[in-house]
Design a protein around this nucleic acid. Structure first.
Lengths: 189, 189
DNA sequence: TATACGAGACGATACGTCTCGTGTTACCGT
DNA sequence: ACGGTAACACGAGACGTATCGTCTCGTATA
């Protein structure tokens, strides 16, 4: 162990939370290190010491759940179509909250610059084993889906469709969720 | 018409082309108005006069085809699966060119800030009537696909899957193209 | 004569590095 | 066991650089 004081946990949390709040307020292009430092009551060096790249702050905040609420576990009722539909409807509700769409768009901006943000965002939106990706894998194991269904591509298509809506500033509603699930899985039961 | 000189077409083109070259070189976050002006041999005011927002330059460059080559018209062989597969394979080849992936990622960064960039990007990648979206519509008209297939969502899922790969810095190969087309249309003929 | 042009000066803002003085904490000698 | 001390993170902010967006020139063109 090295001598001297160690990383301050309270500063770390204040930085992550301030970054989240300011990202929501000003968007990715309006997010400044000086702004985060001031809002968190922290010296700039305390940020640059631990995050050489600004987008790394967002990656950490995202990974710790300080930006987006967790989706529920994707249910496993034995009916993939119903389960994926339920999951997509929950995503649609998530996007229905005012400002959420803008936040996710800002996260996309950060993801463009930082691969880890992209990974954390994908994880949180559906690539996690507890989300769609996992549900689809289980459907193959149980024989509900044929084994040659490319789970990763299917997951990417689902999340990608949603993100494209976010990017184009059009709503993604519950009806879209049902249509999308049906078109991806409907003929396959 | 007002008196005096009018907008210089040569400056306009030099600005759009410089913006494209510098976007490719330095990415969206590294693109500066001063850099564009210097590269184009143009005063800054000539840029700010016509593009109050930087991302607007990218939107125009994209719409004029100065950034991405046009895809071929999606063929209409009477076999939707084959045609969509061919189109996706061409997209995969487009992404195979070195630096193309980075360019598209930069465009995504601009799209986050500017709705018109998002629209132009979607248009150029598949939402145009001459691309997949159009081919799917025609498949419904000809009875090749049932009329309740949501063309827009399907197009978004296809493009979205590709863009998610770009975002996560993973390759999108011809094999993925075939799998994706099959999973979206395979059981539906 | 009205207006766009290239050039660049200007103050403002954010960058990333650095240097303070202060406080905290593991280690080491007694 | 315990106190000293050396190493290091902390908040604050000064610093030079880069880019922003506005503005003001003098020139050129319709």
């Amino acid at each position: 162990m090295t001598r001297g004081p160690h990383r301050s946990e309270s500063s770390r949390r204040a930085i992550l939370e301030s970054a989240g709040a300011l990202l929501l307020q000003h968007g990715w292009s309006g997010l400044t290190v000086e702004g985060i430092a001031a809002h968190a009551g922290v010296g700039k060096q305390a940020i640059y010491r631990w995050w050489p790249v600004k987008s790394g702050i967002i990656a950490d905040a995202l990974a710790e759940g300080a930006l987006l609420p967790s989706l529920h576990e994707t249910p496993d009722s034995g009916d993939v179509l119903a389960d994926v539909t339920a999951w997509l409807v929950e995503v649609a509700q998530l996007l229905g909250v005012p400002g959420r769409s803008d936040l996710i768009r800002s996260l996309l901006g950060a993801a463009v610059e930082n691969e880890q943000v992209a990974a954390a965002l994908g994880e949180r939106l559906g690539a996690a084993p507890s989300a769609v990706a996992g549900r689809l894998s289980r459907a193959i194991e149980s024989g509900e889906l044929p084994p040659d269904v490319p789970v990763q591509l299917m997951t990417e298509a689902l999340i990608g469709a949603v993100l494209l809506r976010v990017l184009s500033r059009e709503p993604f509603e519950a009806g879209d969720a049902r249509d999308l699930a049906a078109v991806m899985l409907g003929q396959r039961r």
